[in-house]
Amino acid sequence: MKDFTQRLIEDKVGLIGFIGIFIVVLLAIFAPLIAPYEPDEMFTNHVMEGPSSQFLFGTDEFGRDIFSRIVYGAQVSLQVGLIAVSIGAIGGLIFGLISGYFQGKLDQVIMRIMDVFFAFPDILLALTIVAVLGPSLTNTMIAIGIVFMPVFTRLVRSAVMTVKENEYITNAQAIGVRPSMIIIKHIIPNIMAPFIVQITLALSGAILTEAALSFLGLGVQPPDPSWGMMLNDARAYMEFGPWTILFPAAAIVFTIFCFNLLGDSLRDLLDPKLKQ
């Protein structure tokens, strides 16, 4: 582990990603201390004002401080991103491992169910699930998690099937290692690279899906701020106040970019072959 931190520090790109995410996390945790105003506080005299010393990123159509809303929005977006992706990734990992390792009938059943999920467009599926469960932040996360699960399942399954072909798996069987340990010790570490990359991609996807759901009124409920919702709210006003869309968009791009940087370097760091 010590070795790992050492290498992360040496890897400049990964470090930038890591620091970026760290900043976003800090924003989310210390939002009440950092934000100058409450996210839903309306300054009716300052509607649609550009950036100034009073309102760093300007104000929106209700006169709310965009900077404060972005800081608080980090809480929501990170939460949605991380938890939704965790649901999808862990579910996908479990189903994918079972499918790929044991194959046979169980595999057929799991994969056909996943195919059904696949057949719906992401947003439609998420909408249906939220509609059934009722609109709330938790249900949004569950819905996004379920939407992402088939992708992870497919990915893990095919990675497992490739890794399983290697003789070191047969070798482990020949030594007498039980299947559960083969999966934990020999299969999981060897499928991590594509899995981690998929997680970073899914994180950005989750943040965007949440934005779309919020736009349709089924995601995060106003007045709670989320970046996606801010983006969608601002669409109507972007001609008069480009800052209303610019800053939330920048926040999303920055976070996703940092996750991708970290993901790329994690994949390399976890590969002993690239260790110098």
Partner: peptide
């Protein structure tokens, strides 16, 4: 095994 490249877990 034959293949010393694939018979050892690279991790």
């Amino acid at each position: 095994f034959q293949d010393p490249y694939s018979s050892l877990n690279p991790r």
